[in-house]
């Protein structure tokens, strides 16, 4: 009796597998768009003109569904030697349950809410840039980095530069769940459903992409032949770069969505989407380079 055909029994790379991969990615992106569309349709059908109160479980679903889809999408990027699923899932949980709370704690400790302060009135005053980039951005990226560096980084599974991107994007995705959940639960759980869902999708992509950039640097630093000083400089610049991307994301998103006393949430969403997609696209170019250089690459593979 012949054994049933298993995926592992397929050739590692084949045209059929490549098609499956591309089809899966398209399905996932379609799922993300459908998620936002569904929220918009629900909003129209129910005639919701104002914000709605999301219960904690519902907020968790709205934050978690895009994260799961993105996570699957990122996972499929690692074509040559896919990482063990449970490792990727574990790092995702680390991002949401360890790195993000740790970042919140750290930020609260070093920069508690200003009591008698006066923030700059525009988003680009020096104090707001410093706070957004060097305090919040750097602290968040540092925690994402530490979550990977002191767990999966020491594992034999972290065996090629591309793994840095995969694991850091996983941790960034988990991180985004925490961020999105608290945003949806903030202001008494009152949120516009469609823009809330869209923001969740783009924020997840953004956090994952910023972390992915850092993962790219992390992977290169681990496997470079250069000395410790070069690796350290590379890592620190990577952290600063991720922090800058993270910080500007919040600042500019806030700036573009405001017009006088009016707030245009969709403008912010569009900006965030543009930035997140741009960073992700650049990251994908870098990933292609890593994949082409992968020690596990087989010629002819897509």
């Amino acid at each position: 009796m012949s054994a049933p055909l298993r995926r592992s029994a397929l050739p590692r790379w084949s045209l059929r597998r490549a098609r499956l991969l591309v089809g899966s990615k398209l399905a996932l992106v379609g799922g993300l768009l459908a998620f936002v569309g569904l929220a918009w349709i629900v909003e129209r059908l129910l005639g919701l003109d104002g914000p709605v109160n999301l219960s904690p479980p519902l907020a968790l679903i709205v934050a978690g569904v895009p994260a799961s889809l993105w996570l699957a999408f990122f996972y499929l990027q690692d074509r040559h030697e896919p990482e063990p699923m449970h490792f990727v899932a574990g790092v995702f949980l680390l991002g949401g349950l360890v790195a993000a709370p740790l970042a919140d704690f750290l930020i609260y400790q070093v920069a508690p809410p200003v009591q008698l302060g006066q923030y700059g009135l525009t988003p680009f005053t020096l104090d707001r840039v410093v706070h957004s980039v060097l305090v919040i951005g750097l602290a968040q990226e540092l925690c994402k980095y530490a979550a990977v560096r002191y767990t999966i980084y020491t594992s034999p599974e972290f065996d090629e530069p591309m793994d840095g991107v995969v694991y850091m994007m996983s941790v960034g995705t988990g991180f985004a769940v925490w961020i999105n959940y608290h945003r949806l639960q903030g202001l008494g759980g009152s949120v516009y459903l469609s823009t809330g869902a869209a923001q969740t999708v783009v924020t997840t992509l953004a956090h994952a992409s910023f972390a992915g950039w850092l993962g790219y640097v992390l992977g290169r630093a681990k496997f470079t032949r250069r000395g410790p000083v070069s690796r350290g400089v590379l890592l620190f610049l990577g952290l600063l770069g991720a922090a800058a991307l993270n910080g500007q994301f919040a600042l500019v998103e806030q700036w573009v969505s405001k017009s006088g006393f009016d707030r245009h949430a969709w403008r912010g969403v569009l900006y965030a989407a543009a930035v997140a997609v741009a960073v992700f696209a650049v990251l994908m170019l870098l990933v292609q380079r890593l994949l082409a250089q992968s020690p596990f690459r087989k010629d002819g593979a897509p």
């Binding site: 750290l106 070093v110 920069a111 200003v114 302060g117 006066q118 923030y119 700059g120 020096l126 104090d127 410093v130 706070h131 060097l134 305090v135 750097l138 602290a139 540092l142 980095y145 530490a146 560096r149 410790p228 000083v229 690796r231 350290g232 890592l235 620190f236 952290l239």
Partner: peptide
């Protein structure tokens, strides 16, 4: 070098937070 990177980043975060407090 890894420890130094993390320590340096933590110092930058703390220093920036301090500077921010002074600024505002």
């Amino acid at each position: 070098h890894d420890f130094i990177v993390i320590a340096l980043a933590a110092v930058v975060v703390a220093g920036a937070a301090f500077g921010h407090r002074r600024m505002v």
